[in-house]
Design a protein around this nucleic acid. Sequence first.
DNA 1: ATCATAAATTTACGCGCGCAAAGTTTTTGT
DNA 2: ACAAAAACTTTGCGCGCGTAAATTTATGAT
Lengths: 343, 343
Amino acid sequence: MAGAKIKNMEDFAAVSGISRPTVSKYFNDPDSVRKSTRSKIEAALERYDYRPNIYAINQNRSRTKNIGLVVPNLTDPFFAAIARTIEELIVGAGFNPLLLSSHGGPQHEVANLDSLRAIKPAGVLLAPLGRASDRDAVAVFCDEIPVVLFDANLDGIGEAFYGSDNLQSIGLIVDYLCRSGEAPVFFEMENPINPNAFRRRHAFGHAMERLGHTPQYIRVKGEGWDFEEIGYREGYTLISGGALPSKTILCSNDRLAIGLLAAAYECGLRVGLGAGDDLRIAGHDDHPFARYTCPGLTTISQDYGAIGAQSVEAILRIIETGNRPEARATALFEGRLVMRNSA
Amino acid sequence: MAGAKIKNMEDFAAVSGISRPTVSKYFNDPDSVRKSTRSKIEAALERYDYRPNIYAINQNRSRTKNIGLVVPNLTDPFFAAIARTIEELIVGAGFNPLLLSSHGGPQHEVANLDSLRAIKPAGVLLAPLGRASDRDAVAVFCDEIPVVLFDANLDGIGEAFYGSDNLQSIGLIVDYLCRSGEAPVFFEMENPINPNAFRRRHAFGHAMERLGHTPQYIRVKGEGWDFEEIGYREGYTLISGGALPSKTILCSNDRLAIGLLAAAYECGLRVGLGAGDDLRIAGHDDHPFARYTCPGLTTISQDYGAIGAQSVEAILRIIETGNRPEARATALFEGRLVMRNSA
DNA sequence: ATCATAAATTTACGCGCGCAAAGTTTTTGT
DNA sequence: ACAAAAACTTTGCGCGCGTAAATTTATGAT
């Protein structure tokens, strides 16, 4: 603009008529300077486009303004949606989110933690892989940097955990299914990677027994995170082999259900809650695509608005007070039944 | 470990018995030092866990090792998958990827560019929003930092563009649809945001005329990026109103098709290529969920392996040679027909 | 107008590393 | 064995900013 090139804060301080330390103070907190000087600085800011060098800032500041955000798998729209929600909360709080995906692999997860270490974040929000996680590596990391876990818990690790109340949510949908027809069997993976899967398994057993039924399980083989594929493949085998033990199936998560729905369709089974339908299928999570399956998937919607908000609030409190809580906080949020046409 | 705490490169140089500048050289390129000194450093690296401070590094280095990666919408699994592919290529090349999503909004897009500016990346891979993009803002950014566009083009902006050959791919699927049955109508949004949508529209017209048909279009209303919802809502209205002009529908993209499939299902129409089926629906992109629709969606698979590889290669070449190409490179990659049961 | 207080300024140091220049040692090729 | 080349060491500056201490100036209530 006005000829002079602003290369650093010193230059900028000169053209704004304020001393550099005060300008520095302004950038760290615009409200910490007198109104008259603030307007002087902001006037200069409009004439010259200067921005403090992030690297120089972070080199000298003990705590950066970065908050790491690690999700198990960004390819899963469910996590993409949570990440988006949380990212916005972080930005809104004046921090800088750093989104990383573990791509379903523990080696990626520790690599992410390593990347974060280099960035010296003020705090980290971590949705761990769960059982696949390198527990020790995560624990060491949490020792160095304040971490709040969400979605999946690792007992005793991190300052807090916020997730869904699987006991409540599975109870809710089991109640509904039993009330509206035949009791469900539980469709899940033999060796799930996610701790929520185990909680849901137990919650299912609990809910069924409460209603006087003996819980039945379909445990399918399959590795990794390709849940739709597993649900489809194993579902197809079961259906075409006439091996389905029930006409009502509750899937451990929506992605399995989506695969199972595809298998049912391909086998010519009509899924739905009508009299003429062959099969009822329900899921859990309210996956972004659950509205567009055929038929729409009856499922449980997790309150990840609350989970995200609570997680962000927790990490911000730790960052701002500067001391970690003595007691590890935990809260589980209730799910909501979303009724569509599949069950 | 061995008592002494390593706080910086100087300390580390001391315990490894090598001078600091040489250690610095090692960290910038391990192969640039003699094998004997490298093994000395690596021996020390195992005893003490030292890592150079990223902020100090980047403050002094003229070009950082960061590469920005901006996609229009991470909630879309299609872009999540591309991003993952590209991320890995960047890491493999020894650079540090920085993934940002524009969340479908131009204000987020410019905010992302602003964030990147602060990070002073060596280069940026940008999949712009397209018509919604703030063209001037992007152009200014490309002036400051080398940018390679992918997926969606902005004419004349950036050092290069790599994307799909919509003329070829739409031609391919139109050929297939005409060969195997009734000629398709083109289902699209009235005012698409993505430039690819326009190319596909024209490609459709071109392909149809080549085959001696007059192209017909269904142009539905709808704003934003909620394509499934738009496809569903408008599809439902059309089908239930008996207003479908053809039994064969080619959607401008898979997400519209997914919504349309749900609408068809709900209206009781059987989608498929069999004699008893009511409707054929095809899409474009080979969305990760296209395999699990009911029935599986016949579509075009974009070669985003090639697009990603080419884009990364281009930005790396610019970074490593240090000078931008005089001519703007462009390449379009061919799509592949993926036949499933919907058409 | 006076004075206590809050805010800005000056001065100065340090963060951890990149990088360049000049001198020294080691390796390489004949 | 020797010269040339390559690699290393020492020295020292600079990056852009945070931050602390001491001093000066502005504020606003009495």
